[in-house]
Design a protein around this nucleic acid. Sequence first.
DNA 1: AGGATAGGTAGGTATTCTCCTACGCGTCAA
DNA 2: TTGACGCGTAGGAGAATACCTACCTATCCT
Lengths: 115, 115
Amino acid sequence: MNGTGTAAEDRVFAALANATRREVLRLLRERGPQPVQALAEHFDMRRPSLSEHLKVLREAGLVSEQRSGRQRIYRLEAAPLADVQDWLHPYERFWRGRLTGLGALLDRMPDDDQP
Amino acid sequence: MNGTGTAAEDRVFAALANATRREVLRLLRERGPQPVQALAEHFDMRRPSLSEHLKVLREAGLVSEQRSGRQRIYRLEAAPLADVQDWLHPYERFWRGRLTGLGALLDRMPDDDQP
DNA sequence: AGGATAGGTAGGTATTCTCCTACGCGTCAA
DNA sequence: TTGACGCGTAGGAGAATACCTACCTATCCT
């Protein structure tokens, strides 16, 4: 279908399942691209640990790095977050106009998949 | 503000960071409330393991259970997913109209938080 | 009452996560 | 060239996950 299987989805959700990594994303969003040092100031954690978090974010496609001298500038890459939003879409009817039309039907419909 | 701190957010994202649990949510969304048995048919996993997944989903507020005889009917509770969508909002400008207006400014702005 | 059924809990194991302390590699400045 | 700086990787400890096999409770049926 799209080349990115469940593995990619797993990596993105797993990357988001950590407060430090979500905070990194917030910092990159609010303050723009930054080197590791500047990010590290906000955390009570040694830099190697933050480096590992950045690696997880990189492998999830949520950030990219660009070398500049001896610095590595990290930048937010939001495409995977758009995928998360797409993933959420089919659930929207459950918190908007909850029991109307088809929503009501499906919401009440008991399981019909028994052998 | 809302009483739910980062701990609740953590539980929700952590709950979503597993393909089995996301599949449970999908089944509840597409087929309506179901007992554990019906859900278990879809997984190559013993029922106690699925029970633990359901516990994680329950503690994240993503499902609720209603006892009916000796069955437990699980139902999707989408409110935490709405919270996820709210969490995503500030990132939207990064994948829509990427480099225009304020977006462009913030996107390029280097870090200005140095002592 | 006795057995079957639905589903949770206990406890164990293998793997993964998250942090740490060393250390290595490239870059810049003296 | 030598040393300091920026940042990653290696390897290890402890906690958390995700599965399993028992086993327990509650409900239903005969």
